[in-house]
Amino acid sequence: MPAKWQRFSVPAIVALALAIPAVVPNAYQMGVITRICLYALLALGLNIVVGFAGLLDLGYVAFFGIGSYVYAFLASPHFGLHWPFLLALSASVVTTAIFGVLIGAPTLRLRGDYLAIVTLGFGEITYILLINLDRPINITGGPSGIVSIDPPSFLGITLRDNWQYYYLILALMGAAVALSRRLRDSRIGWAWQAIREDELAAQVMGINTVAAKLQAFAIGASFAGAGGALLASWQRSVFPDNFLFTESVNILAMVILGGVGSIPGVILGAALIVALPEIFRDFALYRLLAFGLLLMILMIFRPEGLLSFKGPPEEADPLEQVTAERQ
C-alpha cells in the first residue's frame, strides 16, 4: 500500500469501527461483532506465538480459561471478592503471562509437532482441572462454573448493553494490534521471526532463543488473559466448556486462515470464523460440514492464508535480472 494511502487508512478504519453500533440494527448482531473483536484479540495473541515466533501451540485456550477464571475469582460472589474491573483485568493478564512462562519453560527444547502435542496436553490438563477442582475444596465450581460475575464498571457507569461491551473489547483489541505491531518491528520481534525462520542461525546471530521464546509465550498468553477477563465479565459467568480443545483449534484456524503472522489477516480470520457459522445458522445441521468444506477449499487455493505476510508468490526480482544481464 502506498504511504499516502496508509496515512488515511488507519483513521478511516478507526472511524468505521467506532460507527458500527450506530448502524447495526439489533443486539444479536452487535453481539456477533463484539465476539469477533474478542476472538481477534485472542487470535492476535496466538499470532505472536505461532505467527511471529513459529511455535505451534495447540493448547492456547488454556490461557483464555485461566484469564476467565482469575477474573471470576476476583469479581464475583464465589469467593466474595469484588475487585474493580481494571484491577481484576490486570490480575488476569499478569497471571496468564506467568502461566505462559510456566508452560513455555518445559517445552523450550521441543519443536514443531512435539511442541504441538505437549501444548495440547497442557490445554487438556487445564480443562480437566477446571471441571474437577470443586472437590475437596470448591475452587472452580466444577462443571457448573462460576456465575453472577460482576460486570465492568468505570467511574460509576456499569456496562450493560452489547454496544458498550463492544467499545470496551474494541479498545483492548486495538491495543493488541498496536502492541503486536510494535513488538513485531522491534528487536524482540526480529528475534522471534529469526527463530521462526531458522532457530540455529538465530542462536549463532547472538539471539538468546530461550528468553525470546519465553517472552513470546508470556505476551501471547497475556492477550488471552485479557480476552478471558473480558469474556467472564461480558458473559457474567464462566464454565469449563467455554474452554474446550475445539476453541484452541478455532483460534488457530483464525490465525492460519487470515495468514500466519499478518495482523490484518488474523483479524479477518477471526471475523470469518466467528461470522460464517452465524450466517449458516439456518442450515444448522450442515453448518460444520459447509464450514469445513470452505476451509479446505481455501487451503487448496490459498494455502498461505487470505492476507499472508508472505504475500503472493514473488516473480523474479527485476533488480536481480538487470544485475544478471550485466554480468
Binding site: R187, W190, Q193, A194, E197, D198, L200, A201, A202, G206
Partner: peptide
C-alpha cells in the same frame, strides 16, 4: 541459512538483537 521470509534489512537487524 538466511531468515528467508524476513526482509533484507530485517535480516541484518536480527543480527543486531544481541547488541
Amino acid at each position: 541459512r538466511l531468515f528467508n521470509q524476513m526482509t533484507v534489512l530485517e535480516n541484518v537487524c536480527a543480527g543486531m538483537v544481541s547488541r
